[in-house]
Nucleic acid binder design. Structure first.
Lengths: 238, 238
DNA sequence: AAAAAATTGTCGTCCAGGCGACAATTTTTT
DNA sequence: AAAAAATTGTCGCCTGGACGACAATTTTTT
């Protein structure tokens, strides 16, 4: 057990690594044991898996769809910490930590989640130390991303922040089409704004500008990057 | 094992909870086993425990002193993610994740650390699942703090950010003296600036202003908060 | 297909706060 | 104790980008 100390996400730049797909990283028998504890729940678009303030009795695994994890700020702004994609665990922090939920988990499209009671999950981890380790990796991975977002926020102007966001997302959720990289995530300008901490209008402006310059195009809310190299050249801090 | 699902830090506001003191949360025998694996190392003020780019073969526990964990931005700015205090673990993320260090760990004052090879620590965790859980709690705790910092950064003006920083720090590292709370951390304006993502001059200005208004005083780099309640009233987003 | 709702595009105004430039003070080194 | 280095205090200028206000377009609902 506990073999394999390799980087969990096979991406060029480890900095852009996203929280990893747990399912693909644990042994089939461990997965089977996990499934045995789980209840399946379907979540409609826009529905919440949980909200800030809820007690937080469960841990979730996403099987399909996309879930937005965000914190609501005092002024009503949404700060999106990350998107969860299939295979990822979420709602872990509060469960491990105790206390109520501090973030909101809202689905962006119809989603399916595995739902496991925290006490059961705790016992499960105790008897599956390899999974414990994978979970730690996932947590670490997210910490890195948060740290990175923090640095971005402090260091970069809006233009660079948006560009880096796209590069980061494309590392895990982009597909190459010739020279181009297509992001297969539908995002509104507002959502992008909430991820980089800026105003919606500014996102519109920056994006139009990048389109103008031929660095990217947008096809029904899906961003297509002409060339990642070219794109990254347009950020102030390469 | 794995009992106790209570909040790890006994603080009024869980949001201001800092990464927890591991030592105090594990059983004495687990601690003894840990010690057996460790090498003690002394770090002078200003010296690095590790730097970004280093391979990252060890996990560290701080026994005494204070260590600053920060990321250097592209423009040479330091972004301080957190301070480590005695009892805390650090350098875990990269070790769990694989790949080199992404952050710098520099001691702020003479420090003593326990140093454990990652492979040994991995094995140790496997056979001490209670500790695994505590480590997860510590990671979760830090994630919360980072998430919080992110929201602060996006939502609050500099004045509120500084105030919230002080309140956050005072929750774990302040001592009550009558009505006052004294922060027992020596910090320069530059360090504060690096923690809230602003310019040093702005910190000077904000702090002078708060002194003027009698909300706090500073005694050789140590901040004394006249009254936390009063202080928090001076932030825009209460 | 029409109506309602959400998203995108475009301007112009305005100000928080970054940053350079020093001077004054405090701390550290020699 | 003197010199060097670090930290704090103060100003003023200048700009990135927030935000309000609409219009245009696209998507969703009925």
């Amino acid at each position: 057990m506990f073999e394999g100390f390799d980087p969990p996400c096979a991406v060029a730049d480890p900095v852009f690594t996203a929280p990893s797909d747990i399912f693909s990283r644990i042994a089939p028998e461990d997965f089977a044991d996990l499934l045995a504890l789980a209840t399946v729940r379907h979540i409609d678009k826009g529905e919440f898996v949980f909200r800030a303030g809820d007690p937080g009795r469960n841990v979730y695994f996403l099987r399909g769809g996309r879930v937005k994890i965000y914190q609501a700020s005092a002024l009503g702004r949404e700060v999106i910490l990350w998107f969860c994609f299939p295979g990822e665990i979420f709602g872990l922090t509060e469960v491990v930590q105790g206390g109520g939920r501090v973030v909101n988990a809202q689905s962006c499209e119809r989603a399916e989640v595995l739902c496991i009671a925290r006490t059961q999950f705790k016992d499960y981890l105790e008897s599956h130390s390899a999974v414990s380790f994978v979970v730690m990796q996932a947590l670490s991975c997210r910490m890195r991303v948060l740290g990175d977002m923090l640095v971005n926020l402090i260091d970069d102007d809006v233009n660079s922040r948006i560009i880096k966001l796209m590069l980061r997302l494309s590392a895990c959720h982009g597909s190459r089409v010739g020279d181009e990289v297509h992001l297969n995530i539908r995002m509104t300008h507002q959502e992008i704004a909430d991820m980089v901490g800026t105003a919606r209008q500014t996102v519109t402006k920056v994006l139009s500008d990048l389109k103008q310059r031929g660095v990217l195009s947008i096809e029904n809310h899906r961003i297509r990057i002409r060339s990642p190299e070219l794109l990254s050249e347009h950020s102030r801090t390469a």
